[in-house]
Write a protein that binds this DNA or RNA. Sequence first.
DNA 1: TCCAGATATCTAGGAAACCTAGAGATATGC
DNA 2: GCATATCTCTAGGTTTCCTAGATATCTGGA
Lengths: 154, 154
Amino acid sequence: MVVSRRAELMVQLLDALRRTGAWSVSMSQAAAERIGVNTTDLHCLNLLSDGPMTASELARRAGITTASVTGVIDRLEAAGYVRRERDGSDRRKVMVTLQVQRAAQDVAPVFRPFVQAWRGAMDDYTDEELELIATFLSRTQEVFQSEIGRMRAE
Amino acid sequence: MVVSRRAELMVQLLDALRRTGAWSVSMSQAAAERIGVNTTDLHCLNLLSDGPMTASELARRAGITTASVTGVIDRLEAAGYVRRERDGSDRRKVMVTLQVQRAAQDVAPVFRPFVQAWRGAMDDYTDEELELIATFLSRTQEVFQSEIGRMRAE
DNA sequence: TCCAGATATCTAGGAAACCTAGAGATATGC
DNA sequence: GCATATCTCTAGGTTTCCTAGATATCTGGA
């Protein structure tokens, strides 16, 4: 059976995406261990780097219950990585803010060697090629986001 | 302060990689829930799709202890997703083999809508562009692999 | 050949993190 | 003003993970 070059490429690319995801999980585990937090807590720090959010929203985005997120915030706050404060306009809400300086101080050094190696691996791409890749990642993110939304809705 | 276009692009790309990793975690959670396994077990299925391996190697690659992997294999075997068999040449070893047909039957449908949507998002890339992206993912994987190795070794 | 040490997996028991259920505090709309 | 809804937290149970050590098997040297 003849398979088109295109179809072959798509299978190959999908496989690469799957494997990259697997390696990304391993990287998170290794980094979390170094930093001294668990992988869920590190994932939450990652999400919080998009900006402050309420405890509920963090729970929703992290895929855990609001009961569990209380523990996550407790641990991250004790470590000094986040700040918890009541929302002024709605005092039921708890805004969780990443302590950027403090978190970067502990997290950045762990990822620095990776980032440097990865920059090196990107050296021979042209700016145009990097833009193409960035767009690819954005599109992939969008698909993840909408499909996850659909999966959770159904 | 003036920042080069290049440096800006790298920061942007690194950020895209970080976010994509975060979405990938959410996708795994949502998929695992649908399939009816936990995320560790799904991660192991993912690793086993590279081919059969011993219990120890699975533990090492998944980043869990050999004690924990026993439980993982127990659950996956009970669900019919893997087979456990003693290695003929070294009877201490347990080879774990993905039951491809059986696993695909339950796992593929969960990812099918994502794959279709993602294929759609890739439609307007040329074959050459897809090859570029595939190479980018391979390189990124290699960096993950070597850096994780280094992190665990130190 | 036999045995000591190494290796691979599993079992037992405890710790960590997650979940469900519901309480307490605050907000909203009639 | 009060009933209902929303947001976070607490309490208690479950699952999954880990550490420690048991069991089975292999390897190499006496």
